[in-house]
Design a protein around this nucleic acid. Structure first.
Length: 397
DNA sequence: TCTCCACAGGAAATTGGGGGTT
DNA sequence: AACCCCCAATTTCCTGTGGAGA
């Protein structure tokens, strides 16, 4: 009889700790940032409105964990203060691309009714009404606020709600969290001023910080003595070299553990980490290619085609002519070159292709020279999985 | 040196949708 | 049906850049 299931208990003690949703209960590597955040909130302990704060930093830097952590601590502290009636709201803005949607969602959370479709003013009135009902001091955390783009209406309204007489005898403060450091650039100066009273930056972890983070996590997640020091060191080194993200480092370690299980080894060693890093990165790339739109795929396929002929790096207009041929062959819309250039830049952003900007060329000015930045065979494999493209991929490659 | 071409990329307008209420 | 509030993707129009060739 075939054994369909794994016995993971030889390696893992509590895998849950390695999941993305797990919030650590201490963050010694972020003491500075936690202190800053704590100071921003402190006026509330003394009868004044807490300050607004804005946290920036790349993914996996502990921004969300830090704000959750500080809110917990702050709630505990608030208990000891007699006349402080504190409420905290943690709101993730993923999937909300406008202030309006976000406001609707906040209203729904408080009242159970989603006011979508009502005039904007009405939605905000309902939001203020809901806040007024809560009363006291409200701290609203908006995680991933960069999702709402440069639409800053809500961010403008909330910090001024009291001044404008929308709410009375209560304080609202906003803690914004953004992965995108340039997010605040696009906000109107007024919003920027009020929201960024305290701007707290989370810089990438280096290997020395990642190591203890991993050690603490491994302690909980793995069976004692199954993870070697060198394995942890390597995970930290890989992640520090790349994005400096704790999430990334933990993913490597998690995968390395799974590989140990698969190979029936009783220790997680460096070789597992090496293999894990490769697998995780490969998976990230294939995942991001799959999530692209058809037009992105066509642009990528044009690059693949040119790369196959060994003619990269290639200028935008040459990519464009190959692109139009491919788009016609599969019966897709052919976009303007302006747009195709944007698609190429998006592919560059996710690291699938690489665009080098050079001045010069036949007519001067700036030009892009594009080439594939991932394994050719792998890219071909992923693209040929796409129904509409598999025939043309065969012709091109 | 001057003009022009071929590109880059910002900004606004257009297209063609969405989910909701009244 | 006519209204509200919105979306992403794209096109159109524009200004800027800098070497090539007059």
């Amino acid at each position: 009889m075939t054994e369909y299931f794994q016995n993971r208990s030889g390696i893992f003690d509590n895998e849950r700790v390695l999941n993305e949703s797990y919030t650590p209960d201490d963050l010694p590597e972020r003491e500075n940032e936690l202190t800053q955040l704590g100071h921003a909130l402190s006026p509330a302990l003394n009868g004044a409105p807490p300050k607004n704060a804005f946290l920036t930093g790349k993914t996996g830097q502990g921004k969300t964990a830090a704000s959750r952590f500080i809110l917990n601590q702050f709630r505990e502290r608030a208990e000891e203060v007699d006349d402080l009636d504190l409420t905290t709201i943690f709101q993730t803005c993923a999937g909300h691309s406008s202030s309006y949607q976000l406001a609707c969602d906040l209203v729904e959370q408080q009242t159970g009714q989603n006011p979508n479709g009502h005039p904007k003013r009405k939605v905000f009135d309902q939001l203020y009404e809901a806040l007024q009902k809560i009363g006291g001091t409200v701290i609203l955390v908006l995680d991933e606020v960069d999702n709402i783009g440069d639409d800053d209406l809500l961010l403008y309204e909330l910090p001024r709600a009291r001044d404008n007489g929308h709410i009375k005898d209560m304080d609202v403060s906003v803690i914004g969290i953004s992965n995108d450091a340039s997010f605040t650039d696009n906000l109107s100066p007024k919003v920027k001023d009020s929201l960024c009273e305290e701007n707290i930056e989370f810089s990438p972890y280096d290997a020395n910080q990642l190591r203890p983070i991993l050690e603490r996590r491994a302690e909980k997640a793995f069976v004692d003595g199954t993870v070697s020091d060198s394995a942890i060191r390597l995970c930290a080194a890989y992640a520090a070299q790349d994005k400096g993200s704790a999430r990334q480092a933990i993913n490597y370690l998690y995968k390395a553990g799974e590989l140990a299980v698969e190979h029936d080894d009783d220790q997680v060693i460096e070789e597992h980490v090496q293999e894990a890093e490769e697998i995780v990165e490969r998976k990230n790339i294939t995942q991001s290619i799959r999530n692209l739109t058809i037009q992105d795929h066509l642009a990528l396929l044009a690059i693949v085609s040119i790369e196959t002929d060994g003619e990269t790096p290639v200028r935008t207009r040459n990519v464009y002519s190959v692109y139009t041929d491919i788009a016609n062959a599969v019966g897709a819309d052919t976009l303007a070159m302006r747009r195709v250039r944007n698609h190429l830049q998006e592919l560059d952003m996710i690291g699938v292709i690489n665009g080098a900007k050079r001045t010069g060329g036949s007519r001067g000015g700036q030009h892009y020279y594009w080439e594939l930045d991932t394994d050719l065979q792998m890219t071909v494999d992923v693209l040929s999985e796409i129904d509409r493209l598999n025939d043309i991929v065969d012709q091109v490659y």
